[in-house]
Simulated assay, not measured.
Amino acid sequence: MQSFIRHRRLRANEPIRRMVRENHLHVEDLIYPLFVVEGEGVKEEVSSMPGVYHVSLDRLNEEVEEVIQLGIPSVILFGVPAEKDECGSQADHEQGIVQQALRQLKKAFPSLYLIADTCLCQYTSHGHCGVVEDGEILNDVSLGRLTATAVSQARAGADMIAPSNMMDGYVYAIRRGLDEAGFHHIPILSYAVKYASAFYGPFRDAAHSTPQFGDRRTYQMDPANAREAMREAASDVAEGADMLMVKPGLAYLDVIYRVKEHFDLPLVAYNVSGEYSMVKAAARNGWIDEQKVVMEMITGFKRAGADLILTYHAKDIARWLQEGR
């Protein structure tokens, strides 16, 4: 009688390893973030995010043409306005930078799926995700501003609204606002589980959205909490979210797994800026094999339960997949 089991039989060569592989990454799983800025002729690399650029409207199409050639089906737009004020008035302005970008891309690339990040932090002079009064972030007042922003983005051509602000009741408010404006068909990708993470530093550099006072811990989640994530996701599902997101991804694979096990909705993992920049820095120093590390990390998101991955690595991943590497 055999005394032990030979697991290595199914690892003996590349064909059998491919045949029994449990999780597969496809280019259709990727969402690519874009930072759109005002001005002309702008394509400037974000200093803390090698390979990621601020792009003005007149250079945006060439950036998106590359995305489409690589087979990436969707982008998410982050706007960086030239002017900011206390209430973030540019967030829902008809000529806001994201609204202009949405109209432009919808006309030029009708098959590209356009997701609009819906928040106020890039647009407010104080850098918080809601309306501030006497140093307090006002939840219910902020919902009105966020709803107006979502409706304006839908009107400009967004295929999906992705609210990232973490105000209580934001999914309900935005769903109601979209429906009342006739946008019943526009789905909501909720940043359902968004932690107050140290991994956001490079994004805040890219979006010029660092808070000017305090921090975001009164509305973003404590990194120590996992059960709370289930409560946050459950409320967003009840309020009408069509898809859920966990952000960040790499340090929260357990949370991705829990959310996927509990909720029968498509799940997105956000491979955030700090995760991206650490890999880029290590690769530039020759400490790691960038491709192998990125693919292992992204496969980890899939294995944990993510259906889609929002990642700054998307273009590189698409190239590697095309090359069969």
Rank of each mutant, 00 (worst) to 15 (best):
M1P: 11
F4M: 07
A12Q: 10
P15K: 13
R17E: 08
R17V: 13
M19G: 09
E22Q: 11
H26Y: 14
V27G: 04
E28C: 05
E28D: 12
L30T: 07
L34K: 01
V37D: 01
E40L: 07
E40R: 11
V42G: 05
E45I: 01
V46P: 02
S47W: 04
S48D: 15
P50G: 14
V52I: 15
Y53D: 01
D58P: 03
V67L: 10
Q69G: 05
I72D: 00
I72H: 07
S74G: 02
V75C: 05
I76N: 00
P81C: 03
D85A: 10
S89F: 08
A91P: 14
E94D: 12
Q95M: 10
G96S: 07
Q99P: 10
Q99I: 08
Q100P: 04
Q100G: 07
K106S: 15
P110K: 12
L112D: 05
L114Q: 06
A116Q: 03
A116C: 12
C119N: 10
C119V: 12
C121T: 02
Q122S: 15
S125P: 06
H126P: 04
H126Y: 09
G135V: 06
I137W: 01
N139E: 07
D140A: 11
L143F: 08
L143E: 03
L146I: 13
T149H: 08
V151N: 04
A154M: 02
A156I: 14
V171E: 00
V171H: 00
Y172M: 05
A173H: 10
I174C: 06
G177D: 08
G177F: 01
L178T: 07
E180H: 15
G182T: 12
F183T: 03
F183S: 07
F183D: 01
H184V: 07
H185Y: 09
L189F: 00
L189Q: 05
Y191C: 13
Y195I: 09
F199C: 09
P202A: 10
P202I: 11
R204N: 09
H208T: 08
T210K: 08
P223Y: 02
N225P: 04
E228D: 14
E232C: 10
A238L: 14
G240N: 13
G240S: 15
A241E: 03
D242P: 11
M243D: 01
M245Y: 08
K247L: 10
L250A: 11
Y252C: 10
D254F: 00
Y257Q: 15
R258N: 14
V259R: 03
V259E: 02
K260R: 15
E261M: 13
E261N: 12
L267V: 09
V268E: 00
A269Q: 00
Y270K: 04
G274Y: 04
Y276C: 04
V279G: 03
K280V: 03
A282V: 07
N285V: 07
I288C: 06
V294A: 09
M295F: 15
G300E: 08
K302C: 08
R303I: 06
R303D: 09
R303M: 11
A304F: 15
L310H: 03
T311P: 06
R319M: 11
